[in-house]
Nucleic acid binder design. Structure first.
Lengths: 201, 201
DNA sequence: ACTGCGCCATGACATCTGTCATGACCAACG
DNA sequence: CGTTGGTCATGACAGATGTCATGGCGCAGT
């Protein structure tokens, strides 16, 4: 019996995945949580063999939850199950210690297999996504550029970003300009979009 | 036996929902499709009693699929199952003829009940979302303002939007200015965000 | 010790944006 | 028929944005 932990913020999806995996004779869902913060505690309590984590979650996201879980319970293997196949997500997930990475539009029949492979100690990665990740490479943005671009996501003006990050307006404009250049954008909004698409934010 | 049709672009979610609903003795999934375009054809072929449609789908979205389905097969009731509880989505879905509207973070146990209620001819609507919809009201944007704002979503400059919509730059700026005013934003990016959040785009 | 690089800042410049006034055309409505 | 409102356009203006040159500071690596 492979014991599973499910983490997804959407209760309906969580329950549905539970039903899907529960149909397999050798799989057993022993815990379900709705946020990344609850992952470690639930894992310590229910001792799953494999944890299926979503990336987009309120509070702690799936990737940092992966890192925390690896530290707190190294014997639990992590399979990331996410909506967005962003190159940066894959890279960061593997660096955080995930054993597998599955996108939510893979056929349902393959999920159980992915779980079994991960449990057996293998790596499971969508090959198309893996090449994307190689092409896109690591984030070219420096820490500060990332901060500033992240602060610009909600459409804030330079002045607002500056006060929020305790910077001068000129500095914010410089960082933004650098980010725009590095992302190949012509524009703050474009830069945000491509950086998000690559999982750099 | 209530016959069901599932439409969701994410295969994993689709399969998982199928597994979840298949556990109920009185429910039976007779068709699954991955895009809005395929909904009507599948409905005509498999004659479901209730169709569960996602809103965000490639090609035809769930709301227009609802309208098409109501016309092609009026006896099929529609239950919208979506990630985003945007007020405008609810309003437009009901106007298109949907019988129910469920957000994906409702508990999994309630989905089967929602299906049964819809099948019985009742309306199913998240009460919190319903009040939100009343508060937010209908979109204040005119058709053209919506077009321009939609074209601005990807961070395009005024010049690009103008050529794409065959307008002069001044006109684009006027429409954008009007949209910014109506959305209470100070900014093009902010206007896009609030309009999207309300389901106006 | 020197160099490179990230970070912060300033100032200047060209361009882009958002706003406003104004006017024309057309459709809908009373 | 006059009014209202949406659409398109122009021109002008202030303010925001993006770029660039320049300089100081601190922290690596050679």
């Amino acid at each position: 019996m492979i014991r599973l932990l499910l983490a997804d913020d959407q209760a309906l999806v969580r329950g549905a995945l539970s039903a899907l995996l529960g149909l397999e004779p050798d799989l057993e869902v022993v815990a379900e949580v709705g946020s990344g913060d609850a992952v470690v505690a639930a894992a310590l309590e229910h001792r799953p063999d494999v944890a299926l984590l979503d990336v987009e979650m309120p509070g702690t996201d799936g990737i940092t939850a992966t890192a925390e879980l690896r530290r707190a319970a190294p014997d639990v293997r992590v399979l990331i199950v996410t909506t967005f196949g962003r190159p940066g997500y894959l890279r960061r997930a593997l660096q955080a210690g995930a054993s597998g990475f599955v996108v939510k539009d893979t056929p349902a029949a393959q999920l159980a297999d992915a779980v079994r492979r991960v449990h057996a100690g293998l790596r499971v990665v969508d090959p198309a996504l893996a090449t994307d990740s190689l092409v896109a490479g690591e984030s070219p943005l420096t820490a500060r550029e990332t901060d500033v671009l992240r602060a610009a996501r909600d459409g804030s003006s330079v002045a607002v970003i500056a006060t929020r990050l305790f910077l001068s307006e000129g500095t914010v404009r410089n960082h933004l300009s650098a980010a725009i250049g590095k992302t190949g954008a012509t524009n703050r909004a474009e830069a945000v979009i491509t950086a998000e698409g690559n999982g750099w934010l």
